[in-house]
Design a protein around this nucleic acid. Structure first.
Lengths: 343, 343
DNA sequence: ATTAAAAATTTACGCGCGGTAACATTTAAA
DNA sequence: TTTAAATGTTACCGCGCGTAAATTTTTAAT
């Protein structure tokens, strides 16, 4: 008769000598019941195997403990890494995160938002696709669900934005390259989906003007999320054409740089800061792979931890404020220049 | 009065001129209602915004349409890629997948299984951590929830296993390396978490014996999932020590190989198949980055699509069979040798 | 010891849906 | 036209829990 199967909270309350609502309160917040009551429940919990039915729990709750995390592409280690950190932070805070990735597809992004809506989440952390996103749909979503946007800035959408200060990124890399050699050209995709790319280009133009150098922007073809492949092809074209205006390259992001380095290697063009090298290369993001490229990549690093923590903190604040801020909040984090061997 | 807020299925049934049970049938299987009825509902669906409460839906259903996908480390692009494919297949089949990653932590793996249990999923696709997994907990889980294991083989656990034929992987790379030059040594971690690693080592030893060559296994230190870093350090030690028994290296997996190549580059040791190279390198997995390493990596490729499809198909069969197979099913897929520049 | 306030617990009700049986209606076949 | 099969409706119950209001217990103050 010991360890009988507990079917529901009623039964569990009975074996722990309490009423069901008290047990219910415990599961929603253990500190909301008296210590002696808590003890009874926890003893029963050791003896009997029981966990509340999550569906029954959430069906009538005005606010679930669910949190949605949406990123544009989980197979991109940059997003995988940031999603992982955010996920951990949410769990620490007592929430139940669920991860979603639109894998670069705007239609899937909308589907995720629809699914999310039906999950009645306490809040959502959303890194949108960017240019490809259906702005009006996202706007509608943000009106109904407390949402903190991160990484990709969408003008005026969402209750808050947490991201990186693209100017700080580009400023540091351009200054470094210029200080230690020739000023760089800017290597990017022609029509980048991510809005950070546009800000980085603009920052490059600004910084170059401030430093009194002529800017050169190289725009390469390619659509989608295969950035390495796009970068490699673009670099192949660029490198075989010759007549480079400078020997220093600043890539818009690390994944393009990875492709660039692959192309340079295949063409036998040495990249690095030693005298035998013909090109120097720097980039932005501090992609997890950037320390294993050949040569290792000098890059402006995101403050992963700060962005993640700030995003989650901001969302928690938003939730506690009842889902609305009086004014839209924006938080930007500076880059940390990581010097490696590519420049 | 138009587009009034629909609160529940009763209301929605009323505005579509039907009874609630009929509408319920539609949402559980649109083809179970007459075409004319379907039309009525779909017209109402366009006019009014409504989707069933997923929590209320699942609370009494014996079997939800949920499917859990668990991988050991989502920040590893290999798993991100396979999870993505599996996710898509599940959605195609009309299921609602949820992704989980234990990020290399056995405790988190168990927590995921516990959470999954409470989600009453129709089935679970589980790639366990391997050596670090709590076998008995996983075994208990598999007794209660229809589970297909993939990628990592755990002896006798789960209703089915779908993975890659490690022998086929190693056999092809060893044969290729031997045919085109010296037979390789095997480069691996001392205590790999993933059981595939052990099978690959054994396969290496078998193939070398069959071909009549003396095997050499190089075991490097390191724990955790930072394989590139571990590979780089191990390669640094190996390469600086000199007196290599052969000029051909077979890495247990691509991530180690990526680290190896980074080390070789830093030491100025050229890797490749051209005469000016001192080492040749091959590996296993066809990691998404392996085509962008310097040099690009010759590797035995997983049949991502087949493994993903077979895993999902197998799970669907399992679900339709009521959650149990008469005998444990195992399915292995062969590798496809991808020749690139590293050997 | 008495009393009021605060905290904890219980009572009572409802949520939104799944499932079923008996009955009514439509559709397709004979 | 008749008839049987397919589909839809009505009416009911149950699920496992949240939650507001009412009640009891505990704590703190007098």
């Amino acid at each position: 008769m010991v360890n009988q199967r507990i079917k529901n909270m009623e039964e569990f309350a009975s074996v722990s000598g309490l009423s069901r609502p008290t047990v219910s309160k415990y599961f929603n917040d253990p500190s909301s019941v008296r210590a002696s009551t808590r003890l009874k429940i926890e003893q029963a919990l050791e003896e009997f195997e029981y966990q509340p039915n999550i569906y029954a729990m959430n069906q009538n709750r005005k606010l679930t403990k669910n949190v949605g995390i949406v990123v544009p592409h989980l197979a991109d280690p940059f997003f995988a890494e940031i999603a992982r950190t955010i996920e951990a932070r949410c769990i620490e805070a007592g929430y139940r995160p669920t991860m979603f990735s639109s894998y670069g597809d705007p239609a899937q992004e909308i589907e995720i938002l629809s699914l999310l809506r039906s999950m009645k989440p306490a809040g959502v952390l959303l890194a949108p696709l960017g240019r490809l996103s259906d702005r009006s749909e996202i706007e509608k979503f943000c009106r109904d669900v407390p949402t903190v946007l991160f990484d990709s800035y969408l003008e005026g959408i969402g209750d808050a934005f947490v991201g990186s200060d693209n100017y700080s990124f580009v400023n540091q890399t351009v200054e470094y390259l210029t200080r230690t050699g020739e000023p760089p050209l800017f290597f990017e995709m022609k029509t980048p989906a991510n809005p950070n790319a546009n800000k980085r280009r603009q920052a490059y133009l600004d910084v170059m003007e401030r430093l009194g150098h002529e800017p050169h922007v190289v725009k390469i073809d390619g659509e989608g999320w295969a950035f390495e492949e796009i970068g490699k092809r673009g670099a192949m074209a660029f490198l075989t054409k010759g007549d480079w205006p400078t020997n220093a390259i600043l890539c818009s992001n690390d994944r393009l740089a990875i492709g660039f380095l692959a192309a340079a290697y295949e063409l036998g063009i040495r990249v690095g800061r030693t005298p035998d090298c013909t090109l120097r290369l720097a980039s932005n993001d501090d992609h997890p792979f950037s320390r294993f490229t050949c040569p290792s990549l000098t890059t402006a690093a995101h403050d992963y931890d700060s962005v993640s923590s700030a995003s989650v903190d901001c969302l928690l604040q938003l939730i506690e404020s009842g889902g609305k801020f009086s004014t839209r909040q924006e938080q930007l984090f500076e880059a940390r220049l990581v010097l490696r061997n590519s420049s």
